[in-house]
Design a protein around this nucleic acid. Sequence first.
RNA 1: GGCCCCAUCGUCUAGCCUGGUCCAGGACACCAGGUUCUCAUCCUGGGAACAUGGGUUCGAAUCCCAUUGGGGUCACCA
Length: 580
Amino acid sequence: MTTKPAVVTRFAPSPTGHLHVGGARSALFCWAYARKHGGHFTLRIEDTDQARSSDESARGIMEDLAWLGIDWDEGPEFVHEGKKIGGDPQGVGPFFQARRVALYNKYLMQLIEQGRAYPAFESSEELEAKRKAAVAAKQTYRYDRASYHAYPTPEARLARMKEADAKGETYPIRFYAPAEEVVVQDEVLGDVKYAAGEMDDFVIRKADGFPTYHFAVVVDDETMGVTHVMRAQEHLNNTPRHVALQKALGFRTPVYAHMPLICNMDASKMSKRDKAKVARKTLKEAMAKDKALSAAGVGAAIGVATKELEDFIAAENDSLVTAQKLGAYFKIALPEIEVCDFRENGYLPGAINNFLALLGWNPGMKLADGKDLEKFDTKFLAEHFAIDRIGKTSAKFDRVKLLSFNGDAINGMSDEEFARVWREFCSHAEPRLVERVPEGQRWLWLAKAIKPRAKTLRDGIKPAGLFMMGDDAVEFDAGAVEKNLKAEGGKGMEMLREVLVRLQGLAEWTPGAIHGALELMAKERGLVNDKGAVNVGPVAAPVRVAVSGSGVTPPLGETLAALGREGVMKRVERCLAVNG
RNA sequence: GGCCCCAUCGUCUAGCCUGGUCCAGGACACCAGGUUCUCAUCCUGGGAACAUGGGUUCGAAUCCCAUUGGGGUCACCA
């Protein structure tokens, strides 16, 4: 026997794709609110759209949530890194709506018997035509309740439904909207009033027998004991329907808090479709520029049917697959929209959570130096999250700031921690690097050198590029060779020969020893900068070119140490031979 | 178009509820210096905003109204 939690929040995604950053923020806030009040956070999968839902998506969403560190107390059971998440402590499951149809039908019958819901027998085409006519006449379309009046009593409706069921005829069921003002009491926005007659008789059960979102949400929030609904403002206009339904069913109304939207930099709502938009734009521009390019041609090249691609171009579909193929074909980066996009690109969950939490919320606290507190983790959020600090203004998703947060998060890690996380990342993203540099001390040296050069884990791969070259395959950049080796009568080459000797004689092969050797050489040669301090630059530059082929590398101490004595010797000798 | 929401630096925002301490603070970005073996990191400094118009008030970024602007939503999707 478990006691009912005083606070139950929920995140209820539909499994039709990956977890979107906006969804992640909703989940994060709901999670934080539940944690703060010692309540439960519930995950419910809204899979009533049979055509678009998939188990794979549901798993992907759970994986992304778990990766972010957002765990749910109630919901589908899921194992992440050996830890079990979810379960049904209150016995209110299942948590997939498709498995709760009997429950919805029970409440649906109640509404029909009360005369608050009724079957409708118009075809979709019929309604579509009426809708179009209304739009053409610049009028707001509302369902005319023809079916309601055709069968004026609950008994007549029930009889008609029985008749239809016997014949295999399908039909949706509509809710008889109340003729009174509905007030949504929102914790963020205040009272939002919807005048009597604004609501139309919306469908609550589709012809396929599944409930619509509105109906399922209301039944589930009630039966799962949800006390606080926090979701994005795009849902605000749905809320009066939910309130009306709650009233008709005799349910309590949870506390609502609608959060500001997360937008693109152009202020439009950030959505998965933005990937398709970017791909479409690129394709259209390419086709305008190159008349030889055709839908058929490109389609064949990327493996998409001509018709499919033509529809895509005409914006009649927003296929993610097509968008991704086009992105690869034109070598353009599609915008990062979903949590997995950021994950694949080497963002840290902590940075994402922190950044997302600051979109529409802030702790309103100052640091000791008087600056605003804005760096915090989910533990902090769980202790300090409060609805009254949720803002009303929609926020633009500034990837540059997120990148900065991520870089700071990386810099804030210990060298050991970064080495571990980065190695794990590279083992998927760039296995060659992991193969070339053994785990242990050498990898740690490399990681230490890379850490301040990586805004993302993926970012770190580029400055480590020299490690991926074979010791006998360094490609020398002509400009770098000229400037650092051949200029001034081959001064650099001469220096490199001496460096080789000094490094060969080094007793211990560590960053400190290597740097010390280079510094000593500079000192002995009297190399000083304009302030009179030893200037290692002229010694370092030729070595840099020898081991990387370019004039830019991470600091040489760590770089050479991580490369290994043998590799460094080979590279320097080869450089002397090739460029000598 | 109907309905709904919103309005502080380029962006995220503090301040607004409980008017004066705000010629508006922080962060990202940008610019200029500095540290540094290259590239980064790091440090210091700088420019940059209360949408407009009316009220209320001794006093308005803060309260009220209008205008303008932006966004959301109008499915048998969620």
